[in-house]
Amino acid sequence: MIADRRSRAVASLRGLTVGDSFGGCFFVPDNLPALRARALPPDPWWWTDDTEMACSVVAVLHRDGRVDQDVLAASFAEHHDFDRGYGPSANRMLRLIRQEGGDWRELARESFGGKGSWGNGAAMRVAPLGAYFAEDLDRVVAESAASAEITHAHPEGVAGAIAVALGAALTTLRGADLLDAIAARTPAGAVRDGITAARGLLDADPDTAAMALGNGREVSAPDTVPFCLWIAARFDDFAEACWATASAGGDVDTTCAIVGGILGARETAIPHEWLRRCEELPDWSGVTLGGSALRQGR
């Protein structure tokens, strides 16, 4: 059972990393013609904070079999690399934890004028957790909420993480069935409303869906998660899902990371050429991509 859990989490992490690295290429203006032509951007494909934090999630689950919030917060802070594209709030928080012994509970609550963050950062890293606890959906909800609270105290930030984790856990469902099952366990609010809206757009094209649901441009959970789940409900092919996600623009590394993590949890085949172009995972993660020729570091 433990080996199965670990295998599922690793498969999701690999998908998340490839999606993150692929999507991140399109923040480089020179690569935008490749996106329009659906031509693979040149390597190397570097992963971002999405992958770095997801590696901590997986490492803690492998060690403890649960989310120990203090341990996970310490791992986030220890491995925080400023150059990986973290947002200003996360940079400040993780620096204060690592350098000054700050308490993540206080720091998470005080951010954004005491409201806590409702950004998409908790959702971007959580898919491997959903895969790990897939046989127990109540546990998926509880553990994903615990993982989110370390950095995202706002209920919408937590709800976004719960919804994505459920998407990674419910590997046998597609279409309206998937969205209904996720919405049924996602706390009431803007994220759940977006998932409900996504259900009514299953016949739309990606640009139309993104226009209605958001594409992460606002870097919030409500503006990011419903569209990613719409993609997961519509697509099973890894490459097609990532191209459709990236074509909508917005916070492309994060939207592709979420989609990649969910499809990875389904053990959807990742094209070998995509794996080869990606930067390898950090040694401390204990996981390799199994196809990348690129070592960590830039």
Rank of each mutant, 00 (worst) to 15 (best):
S285Y: 05
I270K: 09
A248N: 10
D207Q: 15
A244M: 02
S247Q: 13
P222W: 05
R234F: 02
F227V: 01
R276H: 10
G194T: 13
A212Q: 14
W284T: 01
V191K: 13
E279K: 08
A248D: 07
T224C: 09
W274S: 01
G214F: 01
D253P: 04
P271A: 10
C278S: 13
D253G: 04
R217L: 11
G249E: 09
A198L: 05
A241C: 09
T196V: 13
V225W: 10
E273N: 10
L229P: 10
G264M: 11
C242D: 06
A241G: 06
F238I: 00
R266V: 02
I195S: 13
D193H: 10
A198H: 11
R266L: 00
I231A: 00
F238R: 00
A241D: 01
T255N: 12
E273I: 08
V259C: 05
T254N: 09
E240G: 02
R277V: 07
D205T: 14
F227I: 01
R276E: 15
V259Y: 11
V225T: 10
F238S: 00
E267M: 06
T268I: 02
S220I: 01
W230A: 03
I258L: 02
S285M: 01
L213T: 14
G249Q: 08
L229D: 08
A197D: 15
N215E: 01
T268C: 05
A221N: 13
G264A: 13
G286M: 04
C242G: 00
A269S: 14
A212C: 04
V219N: 05
A265P: 10
V225E: 06
F227K: 03
D253E: 13
P222A: 08
V219A: 15
A244Q: 13
H272V: 07
T254H: 07
T224F: 06
T208V: 12
G260Q: 05
D253S: 12
A269E: 13
W243H: 12
D283Y: 01
A197N: 14
D237I: 00
E218Q: 11
G260S: 10
P226C: 08
C278H: 04
P222G: 07
I262T: 13
L229E: 05
A232V: 11
T196F: 01
C228P: 01
A198T: 07
D205M: 03
A221T: 14
D251G: 12
R277L: 07
G214H: 06
C242H: 12
L275T: 14
D193V: 03
F238K: 00
A244E: 12
R277G: 08
I262S: 09
P226K: 07
C242T: 11
G214T: 11
I262L: 00
H272N: 08
A246Y: 15
I195L: 15
V219S: 10
R234I: 01
A257Y: 08
A265Q: 12
E218R: 15
D203R: 15
M211S: 13
R217S: 12
L201M: 15
P222R: 13
P206M: 04
D237H: 02
W274G: 07
C242P: 00
G194P: 15
S247K: 12
W284K: 02
A232K: 03
P271M: 09
G214V: 06
L201N: 12
V219E: 13
P226A: 02
P206N: 06
A210W: 03
L281R: 05
I270V: 15
